[in-house]
Nucleic acid binder design. Structure first.
Length: 275
DNA sequence: ACCACAACCTGGCCGC
DNA sequence: TGCGGCCAGGTTGTGG
């Protein structure tokens, strides 16, 4: 589901709805949606709290509250928000809903029930182990080159590791490796300095493009709180395109499985050097 | 460090 | 139509 561009887009769309608003009531419709504290304590602590700010860290949406606590939301595979001005809606897959003091309903919808809400005193408790933000100044070509050099595993699963870099997911990793011309099964430690440089450029470029296009909406899974969709699915080069032609060289794109996840790539543009 | 695999869940699609 | 199998943008835990 959502990766960095989608989560960032959702946070931006929710900001004008939530910022400065007081939460009047909270209903938890699927108990496990609330990771901590208990659902009852969660509702009690949120009721009457005002939302000061809303932003993103990795794939977490985070809201600073007037109580001093922070509310974090991870959408996992199928979570999304809907905003209604005239009632709580009637979504089959609604898992949690909040009514704001002005009457607005913010409904969390999640068919697969994987998403989680965390209400904590210190957001670091949840986000402390995340790697750097790939669109921040902390993420430099030099940093990436030095870090991949220390790793033995395949580059693709490494890029999915949120402790390594925060926010990348299955779509944007496939896209970035294709753009950089690096085979997904390359051992991370064998990347040359120019390759690490190209990978850095590609990661930043695909994330920025995804963001500019409002994120990627496949099968209507990811939608904005207003119901609209992103447009970046129209710009994907390799993701979910096995059997189609590589947009760069025309060779047939392939799908392989790494770490139980699909990887899409071009076997000509992304050559695996013989070990 | 690294790997493999199961688990958490529901729904859509495809082939028979 | 029905049913089984596979797939899905993510993460965590367990056991090597």
């Amino acid at each position: 589901m959502p990766e960095l561009p989608e989560v960032e887009t959702i946070a931006r769309k929710l900001a004008p709805v939530l910022t400065g608003q007081t939460i009047a009531r909270v209903d938890v419709l699927w108990a496990r949606t609330v990771d901590r504290p208990t659902p009852d304590a969660f509702c009690a602590a949120l009721s009457g709290a005002r939302v000061l700010t809303i932003d993103r860290r990795g794939k977490y949406i985070q809201m600073a509250l007037s109580t001093g606590q922070t509310l974090l939301v991870h959408l996992r595979m199928s979570g999304k928000f809907a905003v209604y001005s005239d009632g709580p809606g009637e979504d089959t897959h609604a898992r949690l809903r909040m009514q704001l003091a002005d009457g607005t309903w913010v409904v969390y919808i999640d068919p697969r029930k994987f998403g989680r809400f965390y209400l904590v005193d210190d957001p670091h408790e949840i986000t402390g182990a995340l790697g750097p933000e790939p669109l921040s100044v902390d993420f430099t070509p030099e940093w990436l080159a030095a870090k991949v050099a220390q790793r033995r595993g395949e580059i693709k699963p490494l890029l999915l590791d949120q402790r390594f870099i925060a926010g990348l997911g299955n779509i944007y990793v496939s896209e970035a490796l294709w753009q950089a011309g690096i085979h997904p099964q390359r051992s991370a430690g064998t990347l040359t300095t120019p390759e690490a440089q190209r990978l850095h450029t590609a990661i930043v470029a695909v994330l920025r493009a995804g963001l500019e296009n409002g994120g990627t909406s496949l099968d209507g899974h990811y939608t904005y709180p207003s119901g609209g969709t992103g447009q970046h699915q129209d710009y994907l080069r390799v993701y979910d395109r096995a059997g189609e032609q590589c947009p760069r060289c025309g060779y047939t794109l392939e799908r392989i499985v790494q770490g139980q996840r699909s990887t899409y790539f071009c076997p000509v543009c992304q050559i695996q050097p013989t070990p």
